[in-house]
């Protein structure tokens, strides 16, 4: 059964500049987006920066009014029945903000419990339970300003579960967390999955989407470019191999020249310390290495590896190698 239905959602931002000669610029954040989420499903939403992920979450969380289309949560219209929808959902946006730092974790939860009309006798039991669920047992009396970033994120999860919503929107919840914190947070998400929550997760981390999601939608420029299970999406690139080349100070024009090589399907680069890692998707696999090295002649090159494609490679191919 579909618990969330998004049909032809469109949202445009209008930015106005100037005092006397006012000019308005329109930015289409989400353009004709449609998808459904089943009850109990963890649905991943992937896309580059500016693809429309956060805008979609804000619309679903009743924080933005759509310009067109219809969005229903548990059969309720997110505009007409906004207050009813709010009782059914919880949401988190990435980052540390959104908590009262001068209050303790317990007081933050008490305040939000009253905002969600959770009766005191219920919140008294639920707050310790939630703090334990998110790994903050024994830390509830401390002020939030002393929490690490990961602890704040986990407190956000506890906050969003106060009224025991069936549906959760998690917008890049692990952004900025260290690897240990991010792993702990993923364990929290798995706990929520085991509690049969329906979850919409947006993330930049492909392995996160791969390991957690039942289905993944890849969006780009406000449109869905692919929607399937992670394993099915990986089939998009099963004919390809990925050559990873470690370079030091590669010039942008050299990257563009490699991108134009006829056997290169797509190319993305990632900065890592002082290195640039080239990810070249190609059907030729290891055979492409000599030609790629020829393009990098005279440059300092480190490790070169050839590997099987991952969900990230499927994603890069789907969004045109912009990652």
């Amino acid at each position: 059964m579909n618990i969330i239905e998004v049909q032809n959602l469109k949202r445009v931002y209008r930015a106005t500049n100037g005092v006397i000669r006012r000019t308005t610029k329109e930015i289409v954040a989400v353009d004709d987006l449609s998808f459904d989420i089943k009850e109990g499903e963890l649905f991943g939403l992937l896309g580059p920066n500016g693809a429309g992920k956060t805008t979609s979450v804000k619309v679903l969380a009743t924080l933005l009014i759509p310009d067109a289309g219809q969005v229903r949560v548990k059969g309720l219209d997110i505009v007409k029945d906004a207050n009813e929808v709010r009782k059914e959902i919880g949401f988190i946006f990435g980052g540390e903000r959104g908590l009262y730092w001068r209050l303790s974790g317990n007081d933050n939860l008490r305040y939000f419990a009253s905002l969600y009309h959770v009766a005191p006798e219920i919140s008294k039991k639920r707050i310790p339970y939630l703090l334990e669920l998110v790994g903050l047992k024994g830390r509830g009396d401390e002020r939030v300003q002393g929490y690490s970033r990961g602890m704040k994120q986990r407190l956000h999860v506890a906050r969003t579960l106060l009224h025991d919503p069936d549906i959760l929107f998690l917008d890049e919840p692990t952004i900025g967390l260290d690897p240990v914190g991010a792993r702990e947070f993923r364990d929290v998400i798995r706990n929520l999955q085991s509690e049969k929550k329906t979850i919409l997760l947006t993330t930049h981390y492909m392995f996160e989407a791969d390991s957690l999601s039942d289905r993944v939608a890849v969006i780009d420029k406000g449109l869905i470019v692919a929607l399937d299970t992670p394993s099915a999406l990986k089939k998009h690139v099963r004919d390809l191999s990925v050559v990873e080349i470690e370079t030091f100070g590669i010039a942008p024009n050299v990257v563009e020249e490699i991108r134009k090589l006829p056997f290169v399907d797509s190319l993305s680069t990632r900065e890592q310390d002082h290195r640039q890692i080239l990810h070249v998707q190609t059907e030729r696999g290891a055979e492409a290495v000599p030609d790629l090295m020829a393009s990098l002649e005279g440059m300092r090159v480190g490790r070169v590896t050839v590997r099987e494609p991952t969900l990230e490679d499927a994603y890069v191919r789907l969004v045109g190698g912009k990652a």
Binding site: K87, I89, G95, R97, G98, F112, S114, L115
Partner: peptide, 18 residues
């Protein structure tokens, strides 16, 4: 400044009381 507005407006709380 606390970044809590979105979380407040996302609740069903009575705005007048708030």
């Amino acid at each position: 400044w606390a970044g809590t507005l979105a979380y407040l407006f996302g609740t069903p709380a009575n705005r007048m009381m708030m």
